[in-house]
């Protein structure tokens, strides 16, 4: 695609702008900011990726993945601000998920250990893990708050913190995983995944594109489950003190 052709696609930005203006939605400014930011960010990433792919340097691959983890951690941690040490817990979870998935993919020779594969797949894995962390933390903090009586009840009857928080933890893990599982149930019927569509548009064999998409979808299932389970089990102990008491907030 030429830059001229690309610029014509801005028509798709003009349509929401006109609608916003006509219907007084007040979204013109945000739409323009989002468009400009996405152009700058994606072009920048494109140039950086080209440089990294050409260099095939392990150091650059490492730096790119680290940058993704730092940005994802920064984004996700705000949702769990009430949990002590949440930044490290999110970071450790993302690192573990990345090492686990890449370890399996490269270790079992499923994908080659090249910058092109490692960075592209890491982006999807870390991005998905970040969204899962946000979903989990959002649900978990509200579950803990709204079921404080139940937690206190189990403690008062001689239960351990793990027993006292069990229901809230399981509910939060399930709730955060549901969107991933549900979207996979309708994939191909309701929507074609962006990555697969991109490959097909770029001229890849559709069967090859589907095979790669299946790999990514299975990968995201592992990412979803490992992220929420690991973050859950790292987070819940910080809600209690050594005397097995729920730490009082106010």
């Amino acid at each position: 695609m030429t830059y001229l052709t690309l610029s014509i696609t801005l028509i798709f930005v003009v349509i929401p702008l006109v609608l916003s203006k006509t219907l007084n939605l007040g979204l013109e400014r945000d739409t323009i900011i989002a468009t400009v930011r996405s152009i700058i960010q994606l072009l920048l990433v494109g140039f950086i990726l080209k440089f990294v792919f050409d260099s095939e340097s392990l150091l650059y691959i490492f730096l790119m993945v680290t940058l993704m983890i730092v940005a994802a951690t920064h984004n996700a941690r705000n949702k769990g601000a009430s949990i002590k040490g949440i930044t490290w817990k999110v970071a450790i979870t993302l690192i573990f998920v990345e090492v686990l998935t890449q370890g399996i993919l490269i270790g079992l020779n499923i994908t080659p250990p090249t910058a092109q594969y490692i960075i592209s797949i890491s982006g999807m894995v870390i991005g998905n893990s970040m969204v899962l962390s946000i979903l989990f933390l959002n649900r978990f903090t509200s579950e803990v708050e709204s079921h404080q009586d139940e937690t206190e009840l189990v403690l008062s009857l001689g239960g351990t913190p793990k027993q006292a928080i069990h229901n809230q933890l399981i509910n939060s893990i399930k709730a955060s995983m549901i969107p991933t599982i549900e979207s996979q149930k309708t994939v191909g019927l309701v929507q074609l995944p962006g990555m697969m569509s991109g490959q097909i548009i770029a001229g890849a064999d559709p069967i090859q594109a589907v095979q790669f998409q299946l790999l990514i979808m299975f990968l995201l299932l592992t990412t979803a489950s490992v992220t929420s389970v690991m973050l859950g089990f790292l987070s819940y102990p910080t809600l209690f003190n050594q005397r097995m008491q729920l730490i009082q907030k106010s």
Partner: peptide
């Protein structure tokens, strides 16, 4: 907590 039992005012229940 097993030795000193408490019945809480709100009588919370597990589902």
């Amino acid at each position: 907590r097993r030795k000193v039992g408490i019945a809480l005012q709100s009588a919370p229940m597990v589902s």
